[in-house]
Amino acid sequence: MMQPKSPAMRRLMSRFWPLMAAYLVLLLSVGPIIDAPTASLGAYLLAGLPAAPLVGIIVVLALYLLEETDEFLKVRMVEALLWGLGALLIISTVWGFLELLAGAPRLPLHWLFPIFCVAMGLADLLARWRYR
């Protein structure tokens, strides 16, 4: 059954999805603009542009924790964030050793945020099941 969202959660969603859409648009449009990677300030600024909405998403998550008045929902979000961060640290560290010592292919750093989001989403699903 779909659970009704708290006002803070509704605000989080209304802020999160436009930022995610902006991320996808920037991700798909910045690549073709930069023809060949050059180490100039302009190229750095342009290449870093898709990361701006991701910074916004972190801010939006922090705002949710400040605005959520339901202590249980807040605890559930903190748990999901910790699981997401834990999974991110474990995956990136283990993969780092695989790269260093076993010649595994390089894990692009821009994959870290999606890995965090997926891990957090899975943790949230698990929490919903646990507290059902």
Partner: peptide
């Protein structure tokens, strides 16, 4: 109580201990 139904369920089933104010 001014909380979510999920909160009441979690407290009721002993899966979540409420804060002192709650």
């Amino acid at each position: 109580l001014g909380v979510s139904r999920q909160s009441v369920n979690a407290i009721e089933t002993g899966k979540y201990d409420p804060s002192l104010p709650l």
